[in-house]
Design a protein around this nucleic acid. Structure first.
Length: 173
DNA sequence: GGAGTGATGACA
DNA sequence: GTCATCACTCCA
């Protein structure tokens, strides 16, 4: 049974949600086809203290306000002049937290995932749902706890001690 | 190792 | 308005 992950799933501790997203499916409905990818790598950006987060120090701007929004909301931004990044908002409203989808079983690399799924700003701020055309499913994939590897996040050296946080989770086999 | 690429945020 | 920076990927 495919179970749709509701906003309630994302309305919990960010690190817990991040770990539980591993093995779940990211599903994209395009006009002519449906693409499903199993999530194997994520990074958590959790709270106003997290200096690696766009919402570090509670910074709330036109871009980052999405992170303060409802759990289950998609946060998509453009970086390096080339790439789109896909995140899903976690935790309660007004608490800035999100999870970056870094990789899937077939597509490795955050910018490749968005390219493969044709994800861009048109989905930013929308809720992950079938109506939106991008959502998450639990397809009952099982794995052992020791298959989750927690490591430092990528590309956040500027974040001081927060760059050391083991907020990146990978599914190994 | 280094280029490409453009929005964003800080500062003025 | 200017400016540096950036949660990346590709090619060498």
């Amino acid at each position: 049974m495919d179970e749709f992950l509701t906003p309630k799933f994302f309305d919990r501790d960010t690190l817990t949600v991040a770990r539980e997203l591993l093995g779940k499916y990211l599903v994209r409905q395009l006009s002519n086809k449906k693409v499903s990818l199993m999530i194997t790598e994520v990074e958590a950006y959790d709270g106003p203290e997290d200096l690696a987060s766009h919402a570090a120090n509670g910074r709330r701007t036109k871009r980052t306000q999405i992170l303060f929004g409802k759990p289950g909301t998609l946060y998509i931004y453009f970086t390096y002049g080339i790439h789109w990044m896909l995140n899903v908002v976690c935790g309660p409203k007004d608490y800035p937290a999100g999870i970056l989808i870094r990789g899937t079983d077939q597509v490795k690399g955050p910018a490749k995932v968005t390219r493969e799924l044709l994800v861009n700003e048109s989905l930013n701020g929308k809720e992950a749902s079938k109506k939106t055309g991008l959502w998450f499913e639990d397809r009952g994939v099982k794995f052992k706890k020791n298959q989750i590897r927690a490591t430092k996040r990528i590309g956040v050296d500027y974040a001081g001690e927060w760059s050391e946080a083991l907020y990146r989770f990978e599914l190994t086999r």
